[in-house]
Every structure is written in C-alpha cells, then in structure tokens.
Design a protein around this nucleic acid. Structure first.
Length: 563
DNA sequence: TTTGTCTGCCCC
DNA sequence: ATTCTGC
DNA sequence: GCAGAATGGGCAGACAAA
C-alpha cells in the first residue's frame, strides 16, 4: 500500500486525532509505538521524519533552521487560500480558539470546488515545510505563503488543521519528548534509559528512533558526547526552602545564581564555540568570551558551562542589557565596548573524556584545575559547602547574593551526575520573594486551547498623578481553572470593544500581581513593565482609587543598576 | 531611506 | 521564565 | 513528581510598506 508514493499524511493525521482523544499518557505511548512500528515496517526511511512530526517539529533541536512563519503570516496564507480577509481569519480563530480548527473550517468550505487532488504524503508535507526555511530575501514572505498555499490546496480540512499547527510548532495533542522517548522504547523493545541517554547526547529523536530500529541497544549505546556537539543543559527546579533542600541532599554545594544567559562552551581542536540553552551558536556575538576562554582554559578538548552577565565596575547590572548582545550580528565591536561581559563558569561536562557521570563535587574540582581566573572577565561561580549543621553558610550566601545584585542561589547535590535536559531535584534554585502591586484590569486577549473561550491574558494598569490609567503589563499565569472561569464571567459584561482576539473593558476589577523586577518598557503607557508577572488574587476589598501608582513604580525602579 | 510589524524549539 | 493539571 | 500546555517582557534581525 502506498509503496510507490510513500505513506499518506492522512495516516499521521489519524494518529494525531487518536492522540488528542485521550489524556492518558500510557495510551498515547502505545498509539505512537504502534505507529512507529508500522512505519518501521512499511517505510523505514520515514521513521525519523515521523518522529519529528509527532513532536510538532520540522527540524531536530540542534538545527539552526527556522521557518520564519508564525500566526500572522499563516493567517495571511489562510486568507489567501480561502478567499477571505485576514481579519476574518482572526475572528474565526478567536471563535474556534485554535488556528488549526479555523483552518479546518475555512478549508472545509472551500473544498467542494477542488475535487481532484493528489493525496498528500508525509514526505511531501515535511519536505515542503523544510523548503520554507531556505527562503529569504525580497518577497520571501510571499514565496513562503505560496508553499503553504500549495499544501493547503491539496489538503483535506483535517490535514490543514495539523499542517497549520505544525507550522506554528504547537501540535497540542499532549505529546512531548517524554512520550516520544517512551514510544520509541516500546516500539523497538529497548530500555527506556538507553533511549533517554541517546537522546541526551544527540538531541535528535528522529535519529534515535532510526538507530533504535536499525541497530537496537548496541547502536544507541555507541552514541557519545563529543566536544563541538552541544547537549541540552541540565535544568534547575525551584527549591521549597534552603534548609529543607540541603537536608534532603544530606549536604550541598551552593552557588551564587547569576542573572544572565546560560552558555555551554565547547573546545574541539582549535575551535571554540559557545551555545545557548536552546543550543543556538552565539560564538560570533560574544568574541571577548572566546578570547577569555582561549586565555584562561587549556588548549585541549573540553565542554564547560557557565553564565554570561553584564557588569559595570564589577557590579552586575540589569538583565535587559545582555539581550542586546546575545543574538547580535552587526556592530558587535561597538557593543563590546558599551556592554561589557563577564563569564562565571560552574560546570564541566568533558575534559580528558566525558565527565557527565562524574559526581558534581568532583566535576567542580576538575573545573578548578582547568581555569586561570581573570579578574572582571572570567571567574568560577562563588561556591560554599553547606550541611544541615551549618546551614547559615547557605543562608548567608543567599543574602549576600541578593545584596550584591544577583538573583539568588543554586543548591546542588554533590553526588549527582550531569543529566542533560533533565529538570530534577539534583539541582535547585532559590530566588528572592516576589514583590506585589495592585493593578486594574483594562483589557485582555482571548486564549488558545484550554483557554479558547476565556480571556487568557489580562491587560493591567497603574494610575498616574491625574488618576489616569496607564498600562504596565499583561498577566496570564497564576490563574487556576476556577479563577479563569470566574474572571471571564466578571469581565464579559464589561467589554466595550473587540478587535480580533483583543478586548477592552471598563476598568473595575483589581488584581494583586506578583513580579520579580520592574523594567523600563517602551511598550506600555506607564513606561515601565514587570518581569515574570503572576496573578495572585482578585482584590475585592479595595477600589480603583487605591491601586498602585506610576510614581511608586518609578521609585521602586530606582534600585535597579543601569549602565 | 525610513518606519512599522512580525518572528524567535530567542533570551530570561 | 512561572504556573496549573492529569496521570 | 513528571510531562505537557498555557501564558509573561524585551531584544535584534528580517521584511514589507511608506
């Protein structure tokens, strides 16, 4: 069946629908495993592609390719195909709560006209999506839309739904890397741990599925850590409390948590490369870091990790500045003068062979042996050892960290191996208690998926000296299902205007909002905004005259160090 | 040439 | 990034 | 406790429109 043209995309769509119809992970795993096995038998070359598409991805993690299409361009393309205005698509999206469903509806109407079309194959969909990433320059948006148009015109409404979701990389069928790994293990009868490890080291589940099928456990075990090939960084969980965490570990190594960007630095032969958390190569943007590494570390292969921050007179300054450096392609030398960087190293993954299975305590010693510290340029993270008996060491470090303008502390299990991509209990973070503001709701945006028929995000304002309201942030997180419903019911009758997914409302509902930091913002009327806003509660006990003011926000911002 | 909008497995 | 939810 | 999904601010770069 289909042996000549390859498997139909519709078969994959059926799998998506099945996945979407259950919330049980075990069922999802089996559905996927069965499908992977089937592909492996009928069309093995397709296996890596199907693995990626099942994750809602077109390219593997390590790839630098980008589609350059998101909701706006996609809506334009849909409007083009369906012969309606982009605004109509947006309205439809708001009402359907999902751009995929909107595509399904729009193309369903169109469909009767074009009856004879060649059925889409999985290969065709994937290769066309890959083509999109190669298009750039003048009229590129038009050319990208043409490719989408071609796909849509031979797609059934159901297929269109999943093509749009794939383009946006929000498949939303309850499948992520965890489920895919389980499914590969189940499909090809290999241990889950082996799959997990192979994934850690390659960042390519497509490759992992292929190797699992073709070579089994032996093949997977051959995949290894190599300088030059980035791996996903190990991630930290929130600590419930310093004492509790240290006690649970027995004893802990605690370090200052620097507020910058996490980097993984590889030396392979003569080449030094710097990767971000998402494995983007930013070596060109931060030349001085390369120079520091050349000077301070051995000229041998290694992988080390650290945090790059911006400092002024040795003191850390606001996180915002580093964003001017990370993805910069032009005027790098000029910005190098204006926004000087400092690197704090805190881990090693490879030196004289892989070290990820070495306990953290020993990795730190290896790192110390590797580095010649450069004042103001490159240092090791500030570290103390804490036990339940001398827990004050950790607590003091925390206080000192905040006083010094840093973000808090990391609490690390000295016995833990380095677990790429894992967010576990072996590495914890503790940050300052958030501050709060009382703000009034002046608008909102309708959500997607679970929040399709609710306002998924609220626009908030402070008042100025003339009691005029000035916007300051949106908040969306912190709302549980019940509060989401209640708030939506309160807001509905207050809506004065709807534009696409956005609404304006009569100001009257007051929310207490927690946040980590006030930042300067050109986007909001107040001139300021909030980092990590979280809704805490509805304040029914105060009235609109009592909300916080621009003046107060301004005075609180003064504490932040700027260039 | 300048301005405005959109995009990013972006960074956090 | 933070937070909530189903398993 | 994990995995997944829903959402935050801000930056540079890439295009399109003016």
């Amino acid at each position: 069946m289909n042996s000549k043209d390859g498997m139909r995309y519709m078969e994959l769509v059926d799998v998506y629908e099945k996945l979407d119809s259950t919330t049980k992970r075990l069922e999802k795993t089996t559905i996927l495993a069965d499908f992977f096995r089937k592909i492996g038998g009928e069309d093995p070359e397709l296996l890596p592609v199907v693995t990626l598409l099942s994750l809602g991805r077109v390219f593997p993690t390590w790839s630098e390719e980008e589609l350059g299409i998101a909701s706006k361009l996609l809506m334009n393309a849909m409007a083009l195909v369906a012969g309606v205005r982009p605004e109509d698509v947006e309205d439809m999206m708001r009402d359907a709560g999902d751009i995929g469903t909107a595509a399904e509806l729009l193309l369903g109407k169109k469909k009767q006209a074009t009856f004879f079309t060649v059925p889409l194959t999985i290969q065709k969909v994937h290769s066309n999506l890959m083509k999109i990433a190669d298009i750039s320059g003048n009229r590129s948006q038009y050319k990208k839309m043409e490719i989408l148009r071609e796909l849509f015109s031979s797609a059934s409404p159901e297929e269109a739904k999943y093509i749009t979701r794939t383009v946006l990389e929000e498949l939303r069928v309850g499948v992520g890397e965890g489920t895919i790994k389980d499914a590969i293990a189940e499909a090809f009868s290999v241990e889950k741990g082996v799959v997990e490890r192979a994934h850690m080291l390659t960042n390519d589940l497509g490759l992992v599925s292929e190797v699992a099928k073709e070579e089994g456990v032996e093949g997977l075990k051959k995949l290894s850590l190599k300088p030059g090939k980035p791996v996903k960084p190990m991630l930290a969980q929130l600590s419930p409390g310093i004492r509790e965490s240290v006690e649970e570990m027995g004893w802990a190594l605690c370090e200052t948590k620097y507020d910058g960007i996490r980097v993984q630095i590889h030396r392979s032969g003569d080449e030094v490369n710097i990767f971000t958390r998402r494995l983007e190569n930013i070596s060109n943007a931060v030349p001085e870091i390369i120079e520091y590494i050349e000077e301070a570390l051995p000229h041998e292969d290694f992988i080390v990790e650290g945090e790059i921050i911006v400092t002024k007179d040795g003191k850390p300054i606001s996180f915002q500045y580093i964003l001017q450096r990370v993805r910069r392609k032009y005027e790098i030398e000029k910005m190098r003068e204006q926004v000087p960087l400092k690197l704090y190293l805190f881990d090693v993954l490879y030196y004289h062979g892989p070290q990820i299975d070495t306990p953290f305590e020993d990795r730190r010693k290896i790192l110390e042996s590797m580095v010649d510290v450069m004042e103001d340029k490159l240092q090791l993270s500030n570290q103390v050892k804490a036990t339940p008996e001398d827990i004050w060491r950790a607590e003091d470090l925390f206080t000192e960290s905040l006083k010094g303008g840093h973000e808090g502390i990391m609490i690390k299990d000295p016995h833990a191996p380095y677990m790429p991509g894992i967010r576990g209990k072996k590495m914890l973070k503790r940050k300052a208690e958030p501050e709060t503001l009382d703000l009034v709701v002046v608008g909102g945006t309708y959500g997607k998926g679970k929040r399709a028929h609710f306002i998924g995000s609220y626009l908030l304002a402070v008042q100025d000296e003339n009691n005029e309201l000035k916007t300051i942030a949106h908040a969306a997180t912190g709302l549980d299902d019940q509060m989401l419903l209640e708030l939506s019911e309160m807001v509905e009758p207050l809506i004065t205007k709807k534009t696409g997914r956005r609404v304006e409302i009569v100001p009257s509902i007051i929310l207490e909002i927690a946040y980590s930091e006030i930042v300067k913002s050109p986007e909001y009327e107040s001139g300021y905004s909030l980092r990590f806003p979280v809704v805490k509660r509805v304040r029914e006990d105060i009235s609109i005259e009592d909300i916080d003011t621009v003046e107060r926000v301004e005075s609180m911002f003064k504490d932040v160090q700027t260039l």
